[in-house]
């Protein structure tokens, strides 16, 4: 996973959430169906995909998919 488009595909395919590239900047509170279990599932997928260990507190501060992506890739 090297681009945000691939990240969006990951969210669509693995989490089953109906998100588009336009949604990545939205607050997570505005994402239909998003909850803490999706955060866990996504975080473990990102760790496996990127090979980087993530820390929950960093992810909790990320309030959009875009920010989660940034944390995951270390941007």
């Amino acid at each position: 996973m090297t681009t945000i488009d691939e990240f969006v595909s990951l969210v669509q395919d693995e989490l089953g959430l109906d998100v588009t590239p336009e949604d990545v900047g939205r607050s997570l509170d505005e994402l239909a169906g998003w909850d803490s279990l999706h955060l866990l599932t996504l975080a473990t997928l990102l760790e496996r995909t990127t090979g980087r260990s993530l820390v929950l507190t960093d992810l909790l501060e990320a309030r959009s998919l875009e920010r989660i992506y940034a944390v995951a890739v270390g941007a």
Partner: peptide, 9 residues
């Protein structure tokens, strides 16, 4: 991360 998630959520 998984363990932290259980603690928090």
């Amino acid at each position: 991360l998984w363990q932290q998630w259980i603690d928090v959520f």
